[in-house]
Every structure is written in C-alpha cells, then in structure tokens.
Design a binder for these strands. Structure first.
Lengths: 217, 217
DNA sequence: GTCTATAAATAGATAGAC
DNA sequence: GTCTATCTATTTATAGAC
C-alpha cells in the first residue's frame, strides 16, 4: 500500500515509479492542498506523465487518501508505542513528544497536511481514517490519565492538553517550511529552530503545563 | 476596503452586497481554501451570481487578498494594543491571549485561514501582508522582552514562545469548526471547549511556560 | 446594481500505441 | 510500464441586456 510497506524486489532499486508518484503527491498536497495540486503537477514532479498516475492509483482522491492514511498510520503507531511503554507517565509523554517531532522530520509533508485536514474538518476522510485519528488521541489520553492517577500530572482537560502539545509542534513545522521560501529569511518569525531545541522546549513546556505544583503569582 | 471599515449610509441596512460577498468568501476560503472554492460557490452563498463578484472585486485572488488582509489588520491592531498597554508584562500577555481568542470568535474564519496560510508558506501574500504578520510577532516579542527585563519571565526563544501560544489557540479553533460537521460529536477529540475555559487554560499555560521558577523533577 | 449567456482556459480522466 | 493524444467537465472571467 504505502511506500513504507512496499518491498523492493530484485537488487539495486530499478526506479519504483509508484513510490515516486506517492512521494511527489505527498510533497505537493502538503504544500498546496488537495485542490491546489493538479495531476499534471504530480506527474511532472515525479518526472512521469498523467497516465502513469492512473496506472498506479484509481483517482486523484484515492492517491490523496493513501497519503493521509500512510501518515496517520505512522502517527498512530508512534503514539500507541509511546503510551504502551513500561515507564512513568512523564517519561512516556516525553518520548511521545520526541517521536512526534522525529516523525515530522521523516515525513516532512505530515505537519502541513495534518493542519490542513484539521482546518477543513477532514471532509475527505472516511470512518476508518477518523478511527486512526482517534487512536492517536486515545493513546495520548491514556498517558495523561496514568500520570494523573500516579500524581505526576494535575487534572486537566485532555483536549486542551492535546492542543497545547500538538499545536506548537505542527505550527512550528509548518512555519519552517514556509521559511524555506525565498525572501523570508530576514523576518524574525522565520528564524531557524533546531529539532533538538524544539524537542527540549516542548518537553519542558509539557512538564510545566502538567505539573501539580502551583505557579506562584 | 474591509467590511469593518465600510460605513453604511442612509438608514436601515439596504443589503450591502459587497459585504455579503466578502463574508461568504471569508467563510468559504476558510473552510475549503483558495483553490477549494469556486466563484460560483461564493456567489451562491451570498445569494448573488458570478458577475456581481466581479462587479465588486477585480478577481478571485484580489478578493482572497482582501479577506486575508482584513484578518491580519485586525490581529495586528489587537497585538499592538495589547503590547502598548501601561501594565506589567504578564498582564499584557494575558490580555493579548484573551483578545486573540476573542478575535477568533468574532471572525470565525480567521484561525483556519491563518493555519492554511502558514501551512502553505503564504505564497499568495505580498510584502505588505508579510509586514502585517511581522507586526504581530514584533508586538508579542516586545511583551516578552519587557517581561524578561523585569524578571517576570525566564529567557526563552521568542519563536518557540510564539508557537506555543498561538499554536494551541489556532489549532483548537480549527478543531472546533471541524467538530461542527455531522457525525463527529461522538469522538472525544471533538468535545466542546468553552471560550472561557480556553482563555483560562492558555493564560495559565503561558504563565507556567514563562515563569522564572524551576519545575522540580 | 443585478442578471443571463458565453468565451477561454484548465483539469480530471481515458484510449490506445509501443 | 510508459507514453501521446484526446474527451469531457469545470472554472475563471467577460459581454452585454435590463
């Protein structure tokens, strides 16, 4: 299905055109959205032509669906793994955050694509895709509940906690890609932030957000 | 220019078709993006027809530009006002947050539109629009620097702080609109969050994030 | 100011040769 | 598997009547 599950037969990669299409589509859909990308654009980016896209995929929508699906499957796996670790809740949350940031690095198209899907209420997603989104949130909630039960975290609305952790990561990743455009580097809000700094910052922010200690006024 | 600066002459609103077009366009662009919306869609939503759009605006792109511009002007004003108050930095930051959330309520199309613009690196924006975005960030940075100078806030990368405060608010607002679609209410991640709760949460989160106190391990 | 009708360009999808 | 050529529908934009 996805390139990550596609096995290359024979030796020395004979240019897998399906993967080329998939990757080009993911990049472009991420940068310009479903309606902003033409089949021709994808074909050109993959150095192929229209017809090859339809040889590999049923329709533009089906291709888009696979890109989103692949992305959500990866996030779902990551989240479930972090939540299931044999470790204290605060450590599990930290590895959830680190893994999430790492994933955004491995699949650079993921953050803008996810932001967009949320921004438009995911109208193109079927029930099974929504179920994947639910998986991620449930894994996160599980870590949160465990931390509250063990007194590591204060009581908090899980939705707000979720927004507070995912929001900055997604927004920052999107910002980074925007910064890559020409004529943007001079603006202070497009300054470079390393992944290490982002990870440290988000882990600290999460701990401060969830700490049971009061903040003195 | 924008509907907010449009004055209604005579008495008892004689149906301002320009404002109708503007509002319909803002709603639709926000929900489906620039390329996801047709001129016909906007005309239909404003209960007019294609030709009226071109009577009031030069092109689809010009209309879009005005919507984004109007939004950024409002955010810029809000941010500058909050930053210029005669008050301690922590109070100014709190009113920045409250005003930002309120604005998202008054112009419901603002959060998804802004998320999308960031997600795609604002390719449709001219220098003057980017200048408006810069205004918002600079106002925020000013509050931050003042707080650091007076010892209220710890040293922190302004970009990361900016992402940490805007990210959750924008993402949550987008989530709320997504939740409004049918068949979504059963999912826990689409649960309702009141604006009062969001405001309180974000203000607390910001104070905890910026507090000079250490969080004990 | 508001409409109908239409021009002109573009985009998704398919047929069929190699 | 890969290509060219083409069909068809949609979409931005305009002309011109009322």
């Amino acid at each position: 299905m996805s390139p990550s599950s596609t096995v290359r037969h024979r030796r020395s990669a004979p240019r897998d055109s399906r993967t080329d299409v998939f990757t080009a589509a993911a990049e472009l859909f991420s940068a310009r959205g479903f309606d902003g990308v033409g089949i021709d654009d994808i074909a050109h980016a993959a150095r192929l032509n229209k017809a090859m896209i339809y040889y590999h995929f049923d329709s533009k929508r089906a291709l888009y669906r696979e890109v989103v699906h692949d992305m959500l499957r990866a996030v779902g796996t990551l989240a479930t793994e972090a939540a299931s670790r044999l470790d204290a809740a605060d450590r599990r949350l930290e590895s959830f955050i680190a893994a999430f940031i790492q994933l955004a690095d491995q699949r650079p198209w993921f953050p803008p694509l996810m932001l967009r899907e949320i921004a438009e209420g995911a109208p193109r997603l079927e029930p099974d895709t929504l179920a994947l989104m639910k998986t991620v949130f449930m894994a996160f909630s599980r870590i949160l509940a465990d931390g509250q039960a063990s007194g590591l975290f204060r009581p908090i609305n899980p939705v707000l906690a979720y927004m507070s952790i995912l929001g900055p990561i997604l927004l920052n990743a999107a910002r980074e890609r925007a910064a890559a455009r020409p004529g943007r580097l001079d603006l202070p809000m497009f300054a470079d932030v390393s992944h290490a700094d982002l990870t440290t910052h988000m882990q600290l922010a999460a701990m401060r957000l969830l700490s049971p200690q009061e903040t003195r006024p």
